[in-house]
Design a protein around this nucleic acid. Structure first.
Lengths: 248, 248
DNA sequence: TCATGTCCGATTGTCAGACGATCTGTCATG
DNA sequence: CATGACAGATCGTCTGACAATCGGACATGA
């Protein structure tokens, strides 16, 4: 309308409980409260902020959810270093509500695949390899139990991510993995004939990791993901249908 | 100690406000409450759950934080589809508190680089290209204003991610980008001599995207990231020092 | 000495009830 | 039809309270 008329900033009165949460949060992020430090009792916060205890409590709930503070066994409140697994589940739920499609999930997995394999190859330890071998062995044992294989497949990829020893990368992949898991379970149980190929791929990936054979690792990861997509299509589902919430 | 003694599950009495939050959350995730739907007034929830209003309010705060519910202008509570930008900032803060290192950040960026470029190349629209061109032009104009260039570089990579039209991939990259941004700003302002190379890389990337030249896109993205690391080292910082919180 | 039982203050979780401010909708007015 | 007045609903905040639990000090008994 009248473009030239003076525009005012939106007025938003922020409730006191938000201000309380923000004040505490700032202190944590500024490093003046470190993980493990006690935040103080509710009564203390009441005195410091000059608001009612109900208000303080509502503010604490906000922080609690984001993992910045947590109650110890003693029920006392202390600063926590939020671990990304907690946050990852929130993110994948957000994605589900956004109705992301299997196509998006698949392309993301393929985009992340080579990079993660490389990173795992560079940083894997002997323990990582042993854990992967153990997983592989159990998968072979369980090859006739589709749900168990689905479970073990999820574990396999989790171990792979852990082998990167890169927390940023793990964080980036975690929400994706959480969405992949239930889909994989569906695919495997609805068509167990893909299991031998899955085991073969896992085996080659572990072997590539062991010998630090970059090319082979990428190749088999790529095949593994293609098989995953093929299995999805075989199950008669639509690539552009939203990923559903089963189990997340 | 006595391994054979009967082990009991840990007893944890969950407070009522958590149960309230969980009940509402389940209803949303099950799809029985869809984004936009009203959750109901506090008094209604009080009646339904049979708890005090204070308790209901604490439960609401938990959900509010994770973005599952939000208050409209009318202050009434309704279900919201949490947008990942909000969550991403929480995740990057989590990473900062976990003291992740620049090395992890760098390797993650390189792991994600080729995949994102590919995906952007496949899905970019004409509008995406125009936005990137516009960003490029402004970066050239501002080439002598280091902070502005840093800002525009962040925007450039944001546009690149948007061009993938893949929400899962965007989500995966978002927390990483938020950590990259302040670091880039530091690098550029402390050594503006890198700016021409940055502009050159951006230009080639846009060109590759336009012509769908996959090889070229990957090549220049890789160079761009290597330059970024070189700039970081030039600034005299330690690769293994934690990424700091500036601006997040 | 060490394990057990007892008591007290501090803290949290929950509740009842209240008040002012703001938003929504209705109705009357000009 | 724009404006203003009004009532009801709802939220944000507060006061005050009580039970359950936790931590610690202390006493008791083997």
């Amino acid at each position: 309308m009248t473009q030239a008329s003076p525009r005012f900033d939106r007025i938003k009165a922020r409730p006191a409980y938000e201000l309380v949460a923000e004040a505490i949060e700032r202190k944590i992020l500024a490093g003046r409260l470190r993980p493990g430090d006690p935040v103080g009792t509710e009564s203390e916060l009441v005195k410091q902020f000059g608001v009612n205890r109900s208000t303080v409590r509502e503010g604490i709930r906000l922080l609690e959810q984001s993992g910045l503070v947590a109650r110890e066994a003693s029920r006392r409140l202390s600063v926590a270093a939020p671990h990304y697994h907690r946050l990852a589940s929130r993110m994948s739920r957000a994605l589900i509500l956004q109705q992301v499609t299997f196509r998006e999930l698949y392309h993301t997995s393929r985009a992340l695949g080579p990079g993660s394999i490389d990173e795992a190859m560079d940083n894997r330890t002997q323990e990582d390899l042993e854990a992967l071998e153990a997983n592989l062995a159990r998968t072979r044992e369980m090859r006739n139990d589709a749900p168990a294989v689905a479970e073990l497949d999820a574990e396999f990829h989790g171990l792979l991510d852990a082998a990167t020893h890169n927390r940023v990368l793990q964080l980036a992949k975690e929400p994706v993995s959480m969405l992949v898991r239930p889909t994989t379970a569906l695919i495997i149980t609805s068509n167990p004939r893909g299991i031998p190929r899955l085991i073969e791929a896992h085996g080659h990936i572990v072997d590539a990791l062991t010998r630090r054979d970059r090319e082979k690792g990428r190749l088999w990861m790529d095949r593994h993901l293609r098989d995953w997509k093929a299995g999805f299509e075989l199950s008669g589902r639509d690539l552009d249908s939203p990923v559903d919430a089963a189990g997340v």
